[in-house]
Design a protein around this nucleic acid. Structure first.
Length: 344
DNA sequence: AATTCGGGGCA
DNA sequence: TGCCCAGAATT
């Protein structure tokens, strides 16, 4: 048996039961693929169920507000995926009569759909012979064929896509899902089960004892340290303030408490002065520290050293938000955790 | 070509 | 603590 046939055989015997494997409906496949970008199946699965229940069709999603979509997406991360997905839902409804395009070439034009996702939808839904190359595929191919080109170099990306074309099977639907599943379950990043692997015969990395050196990946940039001070204002009605994050950067269009970002960790004295400026309309206020030690919220590229400051005032906010409407807003996990732990 | 988008799980 | 996850868009 050649490589692709072994993958198909392994997949037939080992594939997990997953909701999006019961259908070829492009809406379902698209939703699952976008959710699983840089995301483990276990983490994405409950979100997929939620979304299908709330938005059974692409038309339902297109009709919803972005805020509703972001709220359902809350906690899954990479929120541009949700915004792009929502934009694409509207395009599909308004310009394609609610039907997804059926070719790689057309699919990749849509927002949030790149090479991988276009290949996945085209092959799984429409049997177009287009190999997927995701993190799993990079790992399987680099190990089995002993390729040490960096998978995140432009040369590596081209090489592996080309290799994927050469070794793929005509049963593209099962092959594509099979090689990814094989990478996720059998040819795992840290503890691959090489001892009883159906592809061990012919695996270059195993023969050369280089399984744990592959795939090769270029160094990632170092994380930035940032210092966040969130002002949790509480007025005479026990209302508070949320603001929407606009512009570029993390958590775009999500909500948060008024934020003061500083270059270093600052204390109560500094915050007092800043609050007096930011909330000059407040007649009087008292500030207390919620957490003495900063909460370090770790993201891929930044560590957010965060302090929450409780700003109590006897005034009544005109734009105040009551604590029971607070949970309607899409917020970052950092804010959601605070709201859960704090009694308004 | 390099950087920037989250959050969680695992050794 | 570092690495990775059914990547894409922006700089």
């Amino acid at each position: 048996m050649v490589f692709s046939e072994k993958i198909l055989t392994w997949y037939a015997e080992n594939k997990r039961v997953l909701p999006w494997r019961r259908t070829k409906n492009p809406y379902n496949i698209w939703l699952s693929e976008v959710m699983l970008q840089q995301t483990r199946v276990a983490q994405g699965l409950p979100y997929y169920e939620k979304f299908i229940k709330e938005f059974p069709t692409v038309k339902d999603m297109a009709a919803a507000s972005e805020e509703k979509v972001l709220k359902l997406w809350q906690g899954l991360g990479y929120y541009s995926r949700a915004r792009n997905m929502h934009a694409t839902a509207k395009i599909v409804v308004n310009e394609f009569d609610g039907k997804f395009p059926s070719t790689y070439k057309e699919l990749i034009k849509l927002r949030g759909i790149g090479d991988y996702t276009a290949s996945a939808i085209a092959s799984i839904c429409f049997d177009e012979p287009e190999p997927v190359v995701d993190g799993n595929v990079y790992r399987v191919l680099s190990r089995y064929f002993g390729i040490d080109l960096p998978i995140n170099s432009s040369e590596g990306v081209k090489y592996f896509k080309n290799l994927a074309w050469e070794v793929m099977h005509t049963n593209i639907r099962d092959y594509n899902q099979g090689i990814m599943e094989f990478g996720a379950i059998q040819c795992a990043p840290k503890k691959p089960y090489c001892l009883h692997c159906p592809l061990s015969e012919g695996c270059v990395a195993l023969a050369k004892n280089k399984v744990h050196e592959l795939p090769v990946k270029l160094k990632k940039t170092k994380v930035k340290q940032k210092y966040f001070n969130y002002l949790v204002v509480i007025d005479s009605n026990k209302n508070t303030i949320l603001e929407q994050r606009t512009g570029k950067g993390i958590w775009q269009n999500l909500y948060q408490f008024p934020l003061i970002e500083t270059d270093t960790q600052v204390g109560l004295d500094v915050i007092k002065v800043k609050v007096a400026k930011v909330f000059s309309s407040l007649k009087g206020f008292e500030i207390s520290e919620f957490n003495e030690k900063p909460i370090i919220h770790k993201l891929s590229h930044q560590h957010l050293h965060t302090k929450f400051w409780i700003v109590q005032s006897n005034d009544m906010l005109s734009n105040g938000i009551s604590n029971d409407t607070l949970e309607q807003y899409p917020v970052p996990v950092l804010i959601a955790d605070f709201i859960r732990s704090f009694k308004f």
